[in-house]
Computed example of a mutant assay.
Amino acid sequence: MTGLRYVYAVCRPFELPLQSQLTGIGGAPPAVVHHHGLVAVVSTVSEADFSEEALKAHLEDLDWLAATARAHQGVIDALTTVTTPLPMRLATVFRDDSGLRTMIEAREDDFRRILDRLAGRVEWGVKVYLEPEPAEPEPAAPEKPASGRDYLRRRRASSHAHEEKWQRAEAFAHSLHERLRGHAEDFRLHAPQNAALSTAPGRNVLNAAYLVPRAHSEEFVEMVDRTKDEAPGIRVELTGPWAAYSFSGEAAGETGGETVGEPAGKAAEPTGETAGDAS
């Protein structure tokens, strides 16, 4: 079968080896393509899986998408330990190395500028949740309100208590963000996660990404950890270190070149934009 070039990331040449057992899409170890002082990290994949028509079908197969995203992210994570990668979107493929090199030449100024900016930096994700109310046991005989006025009073009291908790969570999230942004070079505030679509319990108050020098990451993590018990009923989640997806910039997404299919989605933690595009 015809092979296509699947691209995980573009980066500077790196000397440290990747993990010896690292595998990418399809179970094969990733390879590198050097061009104009840049490196594309790639795998050869089957056209039967990554042609335009095949990708349209795979978009309906959540198991395939999940397995592909895990393999993609595994390569990005491995690259992050040895260099600064500029991640491409999931399912960015080219017909051959010629098309890949054409893309690099068309965007190399953008790639170099962004890689220079991100060198030695990683992304940390911070989310703040208002914990769900604990379930209360049902009374043996539910107490009935004495009157309609009594019922409305209870409803207002319950609504007021909930609003107070939400305002307290928002104030905590704002205070935490102000502290964290002071220890980061840049940040992105993403839209809160939809509670109906998220598997995380509670209501998302803050969904932020922070660009932090790798050398200062330990201090950043310690700062987040110290806040986790500051506010009862509020949960703080820290993820990372990631490749700097949220700070890769829109310019690097306009890869151009001879591509096959459309990107199937993002293989990163869902907190930002990816750098590559197969449009």
Rank of each mutant, 00 (worst) to 15 (best):
S51D: 13
D109R: 14
V41M: 00
T92G: 08
E105M: 09
E136N: 05
V128N: 07
H72E: 02
R101L: 08
H72Y: 01
V122A: 09
R112Q: 06
E163K: 09
R70G: 05
R95T: 08
E143R: 10
E164V: 12
A57K: 15
E136H: 07
Q73S: 07
W124T: 00
D77F: 01
I114S: 08
D61T: 03
D150V: 09
L65R: 04
R121V: 05
S175I: 10
D61Y: 03
A66C: 02
R155W: 09
A171C: 06
A119I: 03
L55D: 09
G74L: 04
A48K: 14
E185Q: 12
S43W: 00
D116A: 11
M103A: 15
E60A: 12
D109F: 13
E133H: 06
P132C: 05
L180Q: 05
Y151L: 14
R89W: 10
E178L: 13
H177K: 02
E143P: 00
H177F: 11
V45R: 09
P132N: 04
V45T: 09
Y129Q: 03
E136R: 12
L176E: 07
E108I: 08
V75L: 02
E52Q: 14
H160I: 05
A135V: 15
S175V: 11
A135C: 05
E185H: 10
A57R: 15
P139A: 10
L79V: 04
L152W: 09
L65V: 06
F172G: 04
A169S: 09
G182C: 10
E136M: 11
W166F: 07
E163D: 13
D61C: 01
T102K: 15
A69G: 03
H160P: 00
R113K: 08
V41C: 01
S46M: 06
A48W: 08
K56T: 12
A91R: 07
D96C: 12
E108K: 15
Y129F: 15
W124N: 01
S43K: 02
T81S: 11
K165W: 04
E138R: 10
F111P: 03
D186T: 03
K165Y: 02
V126N: 01
T80Q: 12
I104T: 06
V41G: 01
R149I: 12
A71K: 00
L65E: 00
E143V: 15
A48N: 14
H183S: 11
L130H: 01
K56G: 11
G74Q: 01
R121Q: 07
A69F: 10
H174W: 14
E108F: 03
K127T: 00
H183R: 11
L86I: 13
Y151I: 02
D63H: 09
A106K: 14
G182S: 07
S51T: 13
A135E: 12
E136G: 06
K127D: 04
L152A: 10
V45K: 08
L180I: 12
E163Q: 13
G148W: 03
K165M: 06
D96I: 04
L90T: 08
R112G: 04
A57I: 13
G125H: 06
Y151P: 04
R70S: 07
R112S: 03
D110K: 10
T83A: 05
A54P: 10
R179N: 07
L130P: 02
G182W: 08
K56S: 07
A106P: 10
K56L: 13
